[in-house]
């Protein structure tokens, strides 16, 4: 019998009927699929979590520029500012922004990161997960639960829509990362199954149509600075979902809309750098400087 879960409705039904959390169902299914133990699934997840924290630490301490020279020092600038001038929304907000930039900048200077779900969106989930866990004292066990929850959301989405900018635009990369992050943080904060799925739906719904138009075809502009935006976007969704605010459109249908939107988007806006930001005057100048064409 095929027991694989392919929709969020199925996931919700199983969680409710078995009185289990998303991460419990997800880790059991992953263990069964890969023929390993639940402990091994959690150990694998912990390895990713550890690498995420390592990437943040390296990123916080580097000012090295990317291969193109376009990015690499924004995390440094932000940390400097927060030393004397605190962010309006407080310490955790600061951390999320700084950690997201730290990770994304590590990525573009050929540092070690975790593609979650993709390399271009690698700063979104770690920044929120680590910042919130530090400031609200969530244990490693709870962080792993949150990361598995996020992974299950991403898994179900990716089996409907390819998580590639070339296929569905940035909504499928940074957008999905933001939805996964919303689910992770909602899980961390003790949200129930409906709240977790609503958080993901709210985050995703507000990023539909996001194009992928990177300057000179590199994972730098606008990708690096998009990461902190997306992390905060996810937390906005969590705050609403925890208040019982619902996405009027269920997550499954939001993903269907995302797939359709992706298909309708012009190929020039899907990782081909043939339109949008990529063909602005400044972008073309940068491209000429970097590649000479």
């Amino acid at each position: 019998m095929d027991t694989s879960i392919s929709t969020f409705e199925q996931l919700k039904d199983i969680c409710i009927s078995k009185d289990k959390k998303i991460y419990e169902v997800a880790q059991e299914n992953m263990a069964k699929d890969a023929d390993i133990s639940v402990e091994e699934v959690r150990a694998f997840t912990n390895k990713s979590l550890f690498a995420m924290k390592e990437a943040i630490q390296s990123g916080l301490n580097s000012k090295e520029l990317s291969l193109s020279g376009m990015c690499g020092q924004d995390c440094y600038k932000l940390q400097n500012r927060f030393k004397t001038d605190m962010a309006m929304f407080g310490k955790t907000f600061e951390k999320v922004l700084v950690y997201a930039l730290a990770t994304s900048e590590e990525n573009i200077r050929m540092g070690k990161i975790v593609a979650c779900p993709t390399a271009g969106s690698c700063g979104i989930l770690p920044s929120a997960l680590v910042a919130v866990s530090q400031d609200y004292n969530y244990s490693e066990r709870e962080q792993i639960n949150a990361l598995i929850t996020a992974g299950e959301i991403g898994r179900i989405i990716s089996n409907k829509v390819s998580l590639a900018g070339a296929v569905a635009g940035c909504q499928a990369e940074c957008g999905v990362a933001s939805a996964m992050t919303a689910a992770a943080i909602c899980q961390l904060k003790g949200g129930n199954i409906s709240q977790v799925l609503n958080a993901a739906a709210l985050a995703m719904k507000n990023l539909l149509g996001l194009s992928c138009d990177p300057v000179a075809g590199l994972v730098e502009v606008p990708c690096v600075k998009r990461n902190p935006f997306m992390a905060i976007h996810a937390i906005t969704a969590v705050e609403m979902a925890l208040a019982g605010i619902e996405s009027k459109i269920p997550l499954d249908e939001v993903i269907d809309a995302m797939e359709q939107t992706g298909a309708l988007m012009s190929p020039t806006l899907k990782e081909s750098s043939q339109a949008g930001l990529a063909t602005t005057r400044t972008a073309l100048e940068v491209q000429k400087k970097v590649f000479g064409n």
Binding site: M30, S48, L67, N107, M110, A115, P117, G151
Partner: peptide, 12 residues
């Protein structure tokens, strides 16, 4: 699930 939360890799 593993595909989504990995790989640990050198960017970008």
């Amino acid at each position: 699930l593993f595909d989504i939360i990995s790989p640990v890799m050198i960017g970008p």
